[in-house]
Design a protein around this nucleic acid. Structure first.
Lengths: 136, 136
DNA sequence: CCGTATCCGAAAGGATACTG
DNA sequence: CAGTATCCTTTCGGATACGG
């Protein structure tokens, strides 16, 4: 996560800093519903190590996409939530997930029945809740 | 580009295989207008080595996103173009570029005038041609 | 013109153990 | 609970040189 400062002027390269990481979209996606605790995040994204989660959250915080709220209590409680800026990314991620989901389906269809055109791309837009199982 | 087969069932991870690479979106974006020659691609994406360009094109070809046409002539001529599948990704990339461009602007505004709300996000949708200078 | 073949460094990501 | 600190592996992508 350290130095992603390459080619800073290009919209594509710039966007990749925020969504190109292996877990970035997954984390943002989990936060879309509202404030979420560290461990809830961790549990929602299996295979994601605490270290990487922390790094990503810190990155998003610095970039003003995510806000952190610590409740000094025992046991400690920390919540993360999207800022307005952060929310701007959600529709974009949604598009990506929609495509990913559709393409996954097309692949499956191709494997099952050899050759069947299939135009899942559009019918899907409504059907797919897109809410859960993002993060293996 | 070799083994991007992790967490294959997740839409996010799946999509990242196609757009998560440093140059993938740039290449696809350059191809959106039609058949394009290798060297044109290469020149349009400075800082991109031939090796990486070749790797990416091969990957997209295998995945059925890009089609390759070789003209046996002297000098040789090879063109790449998007398949229908490949074209499905363009609107997604467009969203990403739009966000990247808008966010870049907001950053600039913040640096120039300290504190100015600015809602570039929406006015921009129309204004930005988005065609050129993607790839530094 | 359009690639392929090697080699290499940087960095992302993972495992694990420890702390306020 | 919510991290931090280390260490270690993997892989990505860049440089360079050569081939059809």
């Amino acid at each position: 996560m350290a130095s992603k400062e390459t080619l800073a002027g290009c919209p594509v390269q710039h966007a990749l800093q925020y969504i190109g990481g292996k877990w970035q979209m997954g984390i943002l996606w989990q936060l879309r519903k509202g404030a979420t605790r560290f461990n809830v995040l961790k549990d929602a994204l299996p295979n994601l190590s605490e270290k990487v989660l922390t790094e990503n959250l810190k990155f998003f915080e610095e970039k003003g996409m995510v806000e952190k709220q610590s409740f000094l209590s025992v046991p400690p409680k920390v919540e993360y939530m999207l800022t307005i800026e952060g929310q701007n990314l959600i529709p974009v991620i949604e598009k990506i997930i929609l495509w990913g989901y559709a393409h996954l389906q097309e692949e499956k269809v191709k494997r099952d029945t050899l050759s069947t055109p299939s135009v899942v791309m559009n019918e899907l837009q409504q059907k797919y809740d897109a809410s859960e199982n993002v993060g293996s």
